[in-house]
Simulated scan of single mutants.
Amino acid sequence: MTDVKNAQSRPRVEPVWDQNGRAWDEVRRGGTSGGLGGISGADWLLYGAVAAVSLGIGIVNALSAAQDAAWRGAAYDARTPLFWEMTSIVTIIVVAPVLFVAVRRMRHVSGWPLRIGLAVAAIIIFSTLHIAGMVGLRKLAMFLVGGTYDFHSSAATLIYEFRKDVITCLLIGGALWLIDSRREAQQSRLVVATVPADPPSAAPHMVWLRDGSTRIRIEPRDILWVSSAGNYVEYSLADGINHLVRGTLAAEEARLTRFNIVRVHRTRLVNLSRVTGLKTGANGDFELTLDTGQAISGSRRYRGAVNSLEALAANSTSVRDDTGARP
């Protein structure tokens, strides 16, 4: 790890509960897999569903428009309404990742005012890209066939398109929010089911690992940090020994939280009992100094994990000020 100083590599140890790892046991990494912005892994299935539903709605709307025109006495021609609908639908499919990114960001921030602000910003960005892309496609297509396209840009036209985009954003974003909530609930149940208790004969303050048929006992107070390493998690101990454990960081977090070992980064847990210093940055990120002198970086997303340390530091400063002593 580039942001943990003096880390060492040591023997691999497999935990008792994970002899047969499953793909869904792994902690899902944030960000993307290099595809369309904000989409990775199982999200492609949802993205495909959004695309399929959008295309279906576009085709039905086009056919309905053609039928309505025929009932009004015009010739039945589905080509023109289908062209208008498809330019809109294709653009929606292309810019849909904006909503994926926004929903994920909203789920990782606290406070509804901030979430609402992100939602409003996402809707505005989505609608702007949708209208610009749709108009651009129509102008390009008409130019290629020797025609022209006039969007009749006006406040009324923009409002007309924007209110439809609001509904589209709410439908796609709401569906993604509900699916993510269900997925997280399932993963939480899976973690509880797959993290067994330590051996019945073990003391409640012990942590046991297993290497083949050999059990290795470590004291929680000797753990400095636990970090993810691909399909493994790595225990870094105060004596310099590291144990590479096959499993997930979420599973380790579930059983180590009671020892004051908490997540401070998407890829890392830290033993707060070993922390001797805390430095926060202007962007909300922070750095912890351990009693071994090593520095561990933390993400603002997990700032709440070190609230107890900040409160302790604030109380200590308050006591010194009340007694007249200088820090």
Rank of each mutant, 00 (worst) to 15 (best):
T87F: 02
T87V: 05
T87E: 10
S88N: 12
S88I: 00
S88L: 05
S88Q: 06
S88Y: 02
S88F: 03
I89G: 01
I89C: 07
V90T: 11
V90P: 05
V90A: 13
V90Q: 09
T91C: 13
T91G: 13
T91W: 12
T91M: 14
I92D: 09
I92K: 11
I92C: 13
I92Y: 11
I93E: 09
I93L: 08
I93W: 12
V94R: 05
V94M: 13
V94P: 01
V94C: 11
V95I: 14
V95K: 12
V95S: 11
V95Y: 15
A96M: 12
A96S: 15
P97Q: 04
P97F: 08
P97K: 01
V98D: 03
V98C: 12
L99I: 15
L99V: 14
L99C: 07
V101K: 04
V101E: 05
V101W: 04
V101H: 03
A102Y: 01
A102L: 11
A102K: 03
A102N: 07
V103I: 15
V103K: 02
V103E: 06
R104T: 13
R104G: 14
R104M: 08
R105Y: 00
R105W: 00
R105K: 13
R105D: 00
R105M: 07
R105L: 05
M106W: 00
M106G: 02
R107C: 04
R107N: 09
R107S: 11
H108V: 10
H108K: 08
H108S: 14
V109K: 10
V109R: 13
S110Y: 07
S110H: 13
S110I: 07
S110Q: 13
G111F: 06
G111S: 08
G111P: 03
G111N: 09
G111Y: 10
W112P: 00
W112L: 14
W112K: 10
P113S: 12
P113N: 13
P113C: 15
P113E: 13
L114E: 09
L114Q: 09
L114M: 12
L114N: 04
R115W: 00
I116G: 10
I116F: 14
I116A: 14
I116D: 09
G117H: 02
G117Q: 05
G117M: 03
L118N: 03
L118H: 01
A119M: 14
A119S: 07
A119N: 07
A119R: 07
A119I: 08
A119D: 06
A119P: 06
V120L: 14
V120S: 06
V120W: 07
V120D: 05
A121G: 08
A121F: 10
A121T: 04
A122G: 00
A122Q: 00
A122I: 01
A122T: 00
A122E: 01
I123C: 09
I123H: 01
I123L: 12
I123T: 11
I123S: 06
I124R: 05
I124Q: 06
I124T: 06
I125M: 08
I125W: 01
I125Y: 01
I125S: 03
I125H: 00
I125L: 15
I125E: 01
I125K: 01
S127E: 02
S127P: 00
S127R: 02
